[in-house]
Write a protein that binds this DNA or RNA. Structure first.
Lengths: 253, 253
DNA sequence: CGCTTACTTGAGTCTGGTCAAACGGGGTGG
DNA sequence: CCACCCCGTTTGACCAGACTCAAGTAAGCG
C-alpha cells in the first residue's frame, strides 16, 4: 500500500523547506518568510493507519491538519447509521478548520490509506492572520475550493442519474488524485470499495454494483477489487456532463 | 413584499456605522477601525428585483457582495436544464468570493425577493487581508459556515427520505430566516415555491407536492401559496433527525 | 375578466432499493 | 499446505418510493 502514496513516506525527516508537497508544480511556491512561519506554526506530524479516524463529529479539536500523504474522506451520519460521504481528502488539503471556527466538529473524517498529516495548533491561527496575510488568503482559498467541490457533489447527488453519478465521481477522483501526486495507474491505485461510492453518491450498494457493471460494459472503466481503471476519461466526462475547471497553482500550508 | 425584509428598505442613506445589520444581536460588533475600513472598502449598493440574477455561472465578476436585505439562492444547472439549488442567501451572507478566488464563477445566484447588497471590489481584498486580519478571519468564518450548510444539505439529499428532506429544509429555512432578521410569521413570510423546494432537495415537483401534503396531514406545517407556516418546529426537527448547532455571534462584512 | 403562474390529484411506469444467496481472493490458524 | 473465514463483490427476484404524464383547480395580476 505504501506505493499508493506517491510522496516520500517519511516526510518527518524534512523541514517545511523540503516539504515533499512543495516539489510538485501543482502547488504554489512559498516565500522564505512564509516557510519560516509555517515551520514555527507546525507542532508535529501525525500518522494514521488505513481506516483510522482523523476527526470525530462533536469533538473540540485544538488542531488543524494539512495532509502530506495518503487519502481519506469526510462524512456525516444519521442516528440510524445512514452515512453520507461529503468529499475526499488528499495531499495538500487542510482539514479541521470547521472546529477551529465553530468550536465543535460537525462531521467526521477517516483515512482510506495510511496517512500523514502536519499538525497545527488552532490557537495560533489568529497569529497567522495577523502576520501572514498571504497564508490567510490561502486558507480562505482552500475553504472556498472545498465549497466548490461540495457544490458539484450536491448537483451530482441531487440531479444526476445513477450512471452519471458514478461516472462523475470516478473521473473526478481519478483526475484529482493524479493532480495531488497520488500515484494512480489508471485509477488502480485508488483503494475504494463500492460501499464508499454508494455512500458518496446517495445510492445503495447493490445498485452501485450494477451501475459499475454497466460502465464496464460500455468500456468506460474496469472495476477491480478495491480500485478501478479508467479506460475512457473523456467518455466518462461526457457521460457525466461535466467539464473540469481550469487548473490554478494551488496553495497549501 | 417590502415587509418581508425586516430591515430598513433604503439602507443607502446610512453609512456602515449605521448599517441595519449591525443593530441585530445575531451579528458580531465591529471595532471603529474595522467600520472605517469597511466603509472605504464598500463601493456601492446594489438593488435587485425579485427573480433578478445576482451571479452568473462563467462570469468573471470584479465584485463581492454582502446581502443587506431580502433573500435569494445559489444554484447550478446541467446542460439539459436540470437545476440544483445549493443553498439560500440571507442578510449577512457574503457572496461572489468564489469568482474572486478562482477567477470564474462556478455557480449562479438569483433573488427570490427584492434584495439589496453592499458591493465591494475584489481587487481590494488583498488589502483587507493585509490590514484587517479580524475581517479576513471573518471571511474565512463565513466561507466555512457555508461549507457546513452544504455538508448538511448533502446529507439530506443523499441520505434522507423525501419526508425527512422536506421537513429538514423547511425548519432549517424557517429558523435561519428568523435569525437573520427576515420577518417570518411562522414561515409565511418566506416566498418559496414548491419548485424551489423540489430543486433544493433533488425531488420532482409532483412528489414534493405530495410530500408537503403528508406533512400537512401530520399537522407539522401548513403550506400556503408561496410560503408556509410552521406548526410544530420540534416535530419537524425530530422527523428530520436534525438538531441545530449552537448559535455563535455571527460575523459579516 | 381573462391570463398566467402555482398548486393539486390520479394513473401508470421505472429507477433504484431491499432481501437473499452465492462467489472469490487473501489471510490465518491448525 | 490446506481448510476456513471474512470482506468485498456479484447476481437474481421482488418491491416501493419517486418520476412522468396528463388534466384540472385556485389564486394573483393587469
Amino acid at each position: 500500500m505504501a506505493d499508493n502514496q506517491g510522496v516520500e513516506p517519511h516526510p518527518s525527516k524534512f523541514g517545511c523547506d523540503r516539504c515533499p508537497l512543495r516539489a510538485r508544480d501543482y502547488f504554489r511556491p512559498f516565500s522564505g518568510d512564509e516557510i519560516d512561519f509555517v515551520r514555527s506554526f507546525k507542532t508535529g506530524l501525525l500518522e494514521v493507519d488505513a481506516g483510522g479516524s482523523l476527526l470525530v463529529e462533536g469533538d473540540h479539536s485544538a488542531y488543524v491538519y494539512t495532509v502530506v500523504s495518503g487519502w481519506g474522506f469526510r462524512f456525516k451520519t444519521l442516528e440510524d447509521g445512514r452515512r453520507q460521504i461529503l468529499n475526499y481528502i488528499m495531499p495538500g488539503d487542510l482539514i479541521g478548520m470547521q472546529s477551529a471556527l465553530m468550536d465543535e466538529m460537525q462531521h467526521s473524517a477517516q483515512a482510506i490509506s495510511p496517512m500523514t498529516m502536519c499538525v497545527f495548533e488552532r490557537r495560533r491561527l489568529p497569529d497567522l492572520y495577523r502576520t501572514q496575510p498571504g497564508l490567510a488568503f490561502d486558507i480562505t482559498w482552500l475553504t472556498a475550493r472545498t465549497e466548490g467541490v461540495l457544490d458539484e457533489n450536491l448537483l451530482t447527488v441531487g440531479r444526476r442519474t445513477a450512471l452519471e453519478r458514478v461516472a462523475f465521481l470516478l473521473v473526478f477522483l481519478y483526475r484529482r488524485a493524479r493532480d495531488s501526486g497520488l500515484s494512480v495507474n489508471g485509477g488502480a491505485g485508488i483503494p475504494l470499495t463500492q460501499q464508499h461510492i454508494a455512500d458518496t453518491l446517495g445510492m445503495s450498494l447493490v445498485h452501485t454494483n450494477k451501475t459499475l457493471r454497466k460502465l464496464s460494459a460500455r468500456r468506460l472503466l474496469k472495476w477491480q477489487h478495491r480500485g478501478y481503471e479508467v479506460l475512457d476519461e473523456q467518455g466518462l466526462m461526457d457521460l457525466a456532463e461535466w467539464q473540469p475547471e481550469p487548473q490554478h497553482p494551488r496553495p497549501f500550508i
